[in-house]
Design a protein around this nucleic acid. Structure first.
Length: 423
RNA sequence: AGAGGAGUGGCAGAGUGGUCGAAUGCGGCGGUCUUGAAAACCGUUGUACCGCAAGGUACCGGGGGUUCGAAUCCCUCCUCCUCUGCCA
């Protein structure tokens, strides 16, 4: 959530920044917001004065009763009058606050200066890449064929017991996935992240805190009669641990990692090329989250990217790192680097990680502050996938396929217990 | 799930209609003393909003109500504890 007080200080900066996102009438929206806030302030001042007067009268009545002066009728009448007008004002103030909130909650985060302009993925900028050679002599096939041939995933029974997008990993497929999860968790721990196992269901406040609600309610599965949401990413429960917290600056950085399954409705995003593991309703992911102060958050973002990059590299697969343009940027993010891996069997790039700095956007929503001496300032929150499993599995299978076997990357051997998958 | 009890400042804990944003203790911060530290003593110590400021308003688990006035009374929801039941 952007901060009105900061908009007041430099509205031009906000206009320029949010225009990058393609919000054409942003100037009107922001100016309207400030004038609504002015109205709010004056309502608040008036209301406080009335309440102050009412408090005084109440005390006066109290004193009179105590001193056996029973002549309080006039004061009571006056109090009733004040109460009537304060009720009206209070209602107005509440409505004004709701009006402001409805607007501000729907304004996305301001893109960082580094974020390129543009409204399609063509405007994204490739930052770095690495290509892993594949055997040109064999006929490379997509992972959904390998999965069938090598008996690694059972989509049919997944369809039967749940529905499309809920695969069953079987035998070495399941082991490969479990190996990857353990490898990712261990590596994160080596890099200073404390492991946690959060709940998979979250309440509405949590969904609001990280920005999924109310903007993207449609992405999450909901348990209707409990008013709980099934997490689309571990970002939601992890970051919300720190909701309504004031953290001492010397406790920073806070670094957490968690493995969780993730659930996304993915409504309307099922095209012809979405096959196999490319897009699922349920998938596994290891997520890293950091909380930092303003001074260090840019540095933290770079560190997280470097970490993700090293992780992908260690799996011996081709990848590229991309800086998202403003139009491709998520609602709550200020700057995002995506990592895509190349799946040679289907000759497609697959996004496997998204590393973002939300700056104060989430912390303002969830009231997360950092205490530095006497000052309290909004924290910066960051997160990244390290990594999302299915597309990594798909890419490993497609990259390391051979005639009668699939080789497992060296770093995973001690986790899988096998070095290749045979027919 | 049923019955009973409870939720107060960083923690412990008092407060059952007015003088309570809230005693007291511990902790934290500043100071005196000391070569330094401890002890002792003195002072200070919640959050948000409005206001140039003085100051004001709101907040005692959340929401609503009664009253001139609510931490205190009523309703409702949530959480925790004890017992019973059920269950990985």
């Amino acid at each position: 959530m952007i901060e009105i007080n900061k908009i007041r200080l430099n509205i031009e900066k906000y206009i320029t920044s949010l225009k990058k996102r393609g919000i054409e009438n942003i100037e009107d929206i922001l100016k309207n917001l400030i004038s609504l806030d002015d109205e709010r302030k004056s309502l608040k001042t008036n209301l406080d004065n009335l309440l102050s007067e009412a408090n005084k009268i109440a005390k006066e009545i109290g004193n009179k009763i105590k001193s056996d002066d029973k002549d309080i009728k006039e004061l009571k009448n006056k109090s009733a009058e004040i109460k009537e007008s304060s009720n009206i004002l209070s209602e107005k103030l509440k409505n004004k606050e709701l009006e402001i909130r409805d607007i501000i909650v729907n304004i996305p985060n301001t893109p960082d200066e580094k974020v390129p302009e543009g409204n399609s993925e063509d405007n994204n900028i490739e930052i770095s890449s690495n290509e892993v050679a594949v055997d040109k002599k064999i006929n490379l096939v997509p992972h959904w064929e390998l999965i069938k041939d090598f008996n690694l995933i059972d989509f049919d029974n997944g369809n039967k017991i749940t529905g499309a997008g809920f695969p069953i990993y079987t035998d070495k497929g399941a082991k490969l996935q479990r190996a990857l999860i353990n490898y990712f968790l261990d590596e994160a721990e080596k890099n200073g992240y404390t492991e946690i196992q959060p709940p998979i269901l979250v309440n509405e406040d949590s969904g609001f805190g990280t920005g999924q609600l109310p903007d993207k309610e449609g992405m999450m599965y909901k348990i209707e009669n409990e008013n709980l949401f099934i997490i689309p990413t571990a970002e939601v429960p992890i970051t919300n641990i720190y909701r309504k917290n004031i953290i001492d600056e010397d406790k920073l950085p806070i670094k957490n990692v968690a493995y969780t399954p993730c659930f996304r409705k993915e409504a309307g995003s099922w095209g012809a090329h979405v096959r196999g593991l490319n897009r699922l309703h349920q998938f596994d992911k290891v997520e890293i989250v950091q909380i930092e102060n303003e001074k260090n958050s840019e540095n933290a973002l770079n560190e997280m990217c470097d970490y993700v990059e090293s992780l992908i590299k260690s799996l011996e697969i081709s990848y590229r790192k991309i800086l998202l343009c403003a139009g491709d940027l998520g609602f709550a993010s200020s700057i995002t680097y995506d990592f895509e891996v190349f799946a040679p069997g289907q000759k497609r790039w697959l996004e496997c990680s998204s590393v973002s700095n939300f700056k104060t956007y989430q912390s303002n929503r969830m009231n997360l502050k950092i205490k530095k001496n006497k000052d309290k300032v909004l924290a910066h929150t960051l997160n990244g996938s390290a990594l999302a499993l299915p597309r990594i599995v798909a890419t490993i299978l497609e990259t390391h396929q051979n005639k009668n076997e699939i080789k497992i990357p060296d770093v995973l051997h001690r986790y899988t217990g096998f070095k290749q998958i045979n027919l």
